[in-house]
């Protein structure tokens, strides 16, 4: 294309290559393009999470009062986090499931810390569209698989908080956490 223009141009002198005017044209448009993109970058980036939102990134929660079969809701990044003390029956139910049959295949062991398999810590955020599933609070339905049930679109999770039925694509997310002591867990 450029060569075509060069050969066609009446003021072209053989061997000169690109005309000065072509060069100025391309350089000017390129510079304007780069400038345009660099103006766009801050305009887009300003919409991402701001520093104060990112700073509120870890929480410590006391778990000493949670008896087997109970759960509490904590807050992590302004979203609920479920901390659940599984009963031996719930643990064996979770282990009895064939992992390959799951939509998001994971074992209970992969979703808990070693030696603390009864502590199931997940985000309380349905992986479908972000509602808070029921099942952590006293008296709430746990759904047909004994874990959590999302009332918005009917996603049902089992006792390892794995998706078993409904539209959600993933298991409830396990956040990064560690046990600061036997009774305190630090999330984030």
């Amino acid at each position: 294309m450029a060569e075509q223009a060069v050969t066609d141009s009446p003021d072209h002198v053989a061997g000169d290559g690109v005309r000065r005017r072509d060069f100025i044209n391309i350089a000017a448009v390129s510079a304007a393009g780069v400038a345009g993109v660099s103006i766009l970058y801050p305009l887009i980036s300003q919409m991402s999470a701001s520093a104060d939102v990112l700073a509120a990134s870890s929480t410590e929660i006391d778990i000493s009062a949670i008896k087997p079969g109970q759960a509490i809701k904590g807050v992590f990044r302004k979203q609920p986090v479920f901390i659940r003390n599984l009963t031996p029956k719930e643990i064996s139910e979770a282990n009895a499931v064939s992992v390959s049959s799951l939509r998001d295949p994971q074992t209970l062991a992969e979703r808990t810390k070693e030696g603390k398999e009864n502590w199931l810590i997940t985000m309380g955020v349905c992986t479908h569209l972000g509602c808070v599933p029921l099942g952590a609070g006293e008296g709430e339905t746990k759904g047909e698989f004994g874990g959590y049930f999302c009332p918005c679109h009917g996603s049902t999770y089992d006792t390892a908080a794995r998706i078993r039925k409904g539209p959600a694509p993933k298991n409830l997310e396990v956040p990064k956490y560690e046990f600061s002591s036997d009774t305190v867990v630090k999330i984030g």
Partner: peptide, 24 residues
């Protein structure tokens, strides 16, 4: 829920939702 729709998009979904909301 509605911004959650965007998280369904493969690969860029979650960052896109966070970008739309300016947070988690």
């Amino acid at each position: 829920v509605i911004t959650g729709l965007f998280s369904a998009i493969p690969l860029v979904g979650d960052p896109l939702q966070q970008w739309l909301l300016g947070g988690f």
